[in-house]
Structure formats: C-alpha cells, structure tokens
Amino acid sequence: MMNWKKSSAVLMICTSMLCNTMFLNVVAAQEITRSNMNAYDPFADDEVVVEDNLTMKERLAKIKEEERQKISGSTIDGVLPGHVYIPKGTKLKVELVNAANSKTHKKNQEVDIKIIDNLIVNGVVVIPKDTLGKAYVYEAQKAGGFGRKGVSKIAGKEIKTVNNIAVPLKKGIIGMGNTDGGAVAVAAAVSLVGGLFMKGSNIDYPAGTDFEVEVRENVDLQATQENLEEVMTSNVPHGIEIQVVTN
C-alpha cells in the first residue's frame, strides 16, 4: 500500500512539473509571438511596413524617396524613368556555400550563399553565376528533450550586381527535424527524467543545399538599355570615383 502511495505521489509530482514546463513554454512562445508581431517576416508573401515602428532615420529616408520619385516622374517604385531594373519578386536559385544546422547556427547568424545561374536582364548578365551573397538564420531552435525537434529557417539577405548595386532578398529554406509525439507522451507520463532523454532530431543543411530566394523590391540598375551592357562589363572598373587636383 505504501509503495502504491509513493508511486502515486511521484507520478503527481512529475505530472505537475511537466504541466508547469509546458505552461512556461507556452508563455514563452506567446511572448516571442507578441514581440515579433510587427517584425519583418522574410517568408511572408507580402511585406507589411508598420509605420509606428519606423525610426526617425527610416521615416526621413521614406519621405526623401517619395519626393525623389515625384521630382523624377518615376512610374515604377524605386526606378528612374528609362532605367533598366530587376523587378520585385524575381526568383533566384542559390545554394549554401558552407554547411548549416539547427544545433550550431543561431538566430540572425549570417551564412554565405552563391547564385547558381546567371541573372540576365534584357540580354545582359547583371549577376554572374557563382556570385556570392548573404543569407541569415531567421529562426533557429535546436533539438531537445521531450522530442523537441530542431528548426532552422534561412532567409536570403543580399547579393550584388556586377556594378556593385545591392539587391535585397527575401524567402529561403525552412527545415524541421523529427519527433515522436506518442513515445514522448508515454515517457513523460511515466517519468519526467525519461522524457528528457527522448530527443528530437536536428535539421542539417549540407554545403551545396540549393533553394529559392526572391528579390525583395524593385532594384534600379543605374543604367539605360543603351548603356546597360557597358555598365555590366566586368572588366570595367566599378566603384567610387574621385578627382584629385595636383599642384
């Protein structure tokens, strides 16, 4: 009788601890969700800019851009009249330069990517094959006890054209490990310690893993169709040019 009572007491304690753990995890998840409600989501189909969250610098930049477009008479967001551009939503195939996984890679950590094929605009290569770019870990969770699976979302960040214009990116790759919910539930009911040893699996991305990203906004190539090929010639020096007067 005593053993039964002790066993019941242990089971109740374990159950209580498990419930508290689950409750704390739910609360933590809700806090994360609330904190990210107004954050930019690179995996969303449409980007929503929350005006209240713009810094003063971002507000001034937005006003300046709107005024520039009015003066220039631009009919396409961010593009001067007559200029060739990379349209928003253009899909690019890229691959990881180095391996990444949900165990070691942290949120916001940058990772190197490279474009798999040439990006050709109006017959001219503007981003050559194998050009390096940047992506970042948008979300990361390593595998843990009670079968918690690893999660890793890697989003495109930026890649540059031949003439050094930054092309902002979004979308990317989403990977999740495995978990056995049924086995975890049984282990948790029998023993809290036992549940801790029921590990989920991490997600691994080998070097060379390919995925698709999108151009986040229209990108003015600072060239017209007439001089696009000249501007995008790789053997022509590109960069900041200054004139120095000598004595």
Rank of each mutant, 00 (worst) to 15 (best):
S152Q: 14
G73A: 01
V184P: 02
T209S: 14
K106I: 08
S152T: 10
N53Y: 02
T179V: 08
A188T: 03
R59H: 03
A187N: 15
K103G: 07
A223C: 09
V215R: 00
K170G: 03
A143D: 12
T161G: 13
S191G: 14
N108H: 14
G144Y: 04
I127Y: 02
N247R: 15
N101V: 03
G200Y: 04
N122A: 12
S152E: 13
G156T: 06
D46W: 04
I159M: 14
V213L: 01
K70L: 13
K149A: 15
Q69Y: 02
K160D: 06
V126Q: 03
S234V: 14
F23N: 09
N3M: 11
A61M: 08
G133A: 07
D46K: 14
G82W: 02
G145S: 07
D112L: 10
K171Y: 15
I32V: 06
T33I: 03
A143M: 11
A9F: 09
N122W: 07
K93P: 11
A9V: 12
V94M: 02
Y138M: 08
I63W: 03
G239A: 10
N38H: 06
N38M: 06
T55L: 00
I127C: 05
G177H: 09
A189S: 12
G177F: 07
V48H: 02
T131N: 13
K153N: 13
V121D: 01
E230C: 04
L132F: 13
S102N: 08
V244P: 06
L54H: 00
A207D: 06
I174S: 09
L132S: 07
M22A: 15
L92T: 09
A39M: 04
V79Y: 01
